[in-house]
Amino acid sequence: MRINNVRAAAVMEGVVRADRNTKRLLRHIRRGEIALICHDDLDEPAAEGLLRSGVKAVINSGRTMTSAFPHDGPLLLLREGIPIYEIDESSFELLQDGERIRIRDGTLTGLHAELVCYPFGYEEWERLKRTGERMYPLTLLGFAENTLHYAANELNSLTRPLTLPELNNPLETRDVLVVSRGSGCREDLAALRHYIRSAKPVLVGVDGGADVLVSQGYVPDLIIGDMDSVSDQTLRVGAQLLVHAYPDGWAPGLERIRQLGLASDTVAAPGTSEDLALRLSYEQGAARIVIVGSHSEPIDFLKKGRAGMASTLLVRMLVGHKLIDAKGASLWGSKKSQLHKFAAIVEGGALWRTSPYR
């Protein structure tokens, strides 16, 4: 694909909002501000979040693309005219949250620092994506070795049921719709309106996936995760909150919930919060589990900086006979036909399983 290069603005000025954690930054950045992040391989959900926040520009002290694998995160920003600049990682601390900066002729000037910055444009994205395509098989080799090694170690954990609190909405014999904040989740959820109206599934938001549900007029029954990417407003809609804890019981997200004065329970489990949501639904006797915005392939995990996907491999093997992955549902022909097609798939019991293991 050939894309014409677009020059960044000759002069860029604005207020910087800084946080090394992009998810956390999205909770407090304001429209028209400049995002200062430290994000290797800027992924699509992060780019979409920055766009929805109305950022003026993005300054990244990480490597916007490492070229270890191909992805389109930066492209989403560039297509909308949002310039991306890169600075050295060591320069992040030289800029203060809330200060006003100016970028001109490759120089970033702040209150107490003058830094070299480099525009990241279409040409860089194209070049690094091509390199990523060549490098991906080698990256995948290490990823697969990591996955298989840890899968062997974690296999026994599947035989031990989760320790769960009593759920406000029992899942037994019910359809469960799990919404995670993966690529295309908003469009795919919108494509399932007819299914949601007819099946009335229990709605489970995984971290920022709960915001996606609320943005389309739904109230999640459960919100599961480490609570690092879901908004305060969504946490207050009345859903039952289950904070994902590590197997040793440590739950990093619990402090935020306490600061908001909200009630919650913790659930200890290995793997991702999405894995926990699928496993919980399965163990609680869900008739079918439909997932939107899933993370089910190696690149999904590489974009999050994860070296493997052992838990996801095992959980997908466990729940696969009940799992319907709605990734790409928005592409199923016309809106009317795709809604009825999905409803027919679910109601007929024909389980569409999409996974990287087939």
Rank of each mutant, 00 (worst) to 15 (best):
D211T: 09
R279Q: 11
V212S: 07
Y85Q: 08
N21T: 09
S231R: 13
K336E: 15
L280G: 04
V16K: 00
A343V: 01
H149V: 07
L36G: 09
D97Y: 01
L50G: 10
R7I: 12
K129H: 12
R358D: 10
E80M: 14
R52T: 15
A47F: 05
A350H: 06
A151C: 06
D41V: 08
V315Q: 09
E99P: 02
L339G: 12
R279Y: 09
P298W: 01
E274D: 11
E126D: 07
A239M: 11
I59W: 12
S281E: 07
G271D: 01
D41P: 05
A329Y: 06
D232Y: 00
A8R: 05
A245P: 02
H112E: 11
S198Y: 06
E93A: 14
L254Q: 15
I223E: 07
S334P: 09
A277R: 01
E126F: 06
A190I: 10
A18K: 12
P356S: 09
L138G: 02
R130N: 02
G261D: 07
A152Q: 12
Y136H: 08
L78A: 13
S311K: 09
A8C: 12
I59Q: 08
A269T: 02
A268V: 10
E166T: 14
I324R: 00
K322L: 15
I289A: 04
M1A: 15
Y282H: 14
G14Q: 04
L192F: 13
G348V: 07
S231C: 12
V16S: 00
R63M: 14
C38G: 05
T354F: 04
E93W: 07
Y195W: 13
G54P: 12
N156E: 14
L302T: 02
A113D: 03
S273F: 08
T22S: 13
L235N: 06
V267A: 03
A46W: 02
D300P: 02
S90C: 11
T173N: 15
G238K: 05
L189N: 08
G238P: 06
W125R: 00
I84H: 07
A286T: 03
M227G: 02
S183E: 14
T66D: 11
S229P: 07
D72N: 14
A350G: 04
T163Q: 14
Y150K: 10
T163G: 05
I34C: 10
T266Y: 01
Y122D: 01
G285F: 05
G225K: 02
N153T: 10
G106V: 08
Q338Y: 03
R31C: 15
L351T: 12
A151D: 04
R316C: 11
T131W: 01
S311L: 01
T234K: 06
D88T: 08
T64W: 10
L314R: 05
V11N: 06
I289T: 05
I29W: 05
F342L: 04
N5I: 14
L280F: 08
L262Y: 04
T107A: 13
L108P: 04
G349I: 02
Y136S: 04
G333R: 07
E86N: 13
L140S: 01
Q240H: 06
I103L: 08
N169K: 13
H194C: 11
D88F: 09
I324G: 00
L148M: 11
G328M: 03
H295E: 01
V212Q: 05
Q233W: 00
I37F: 10
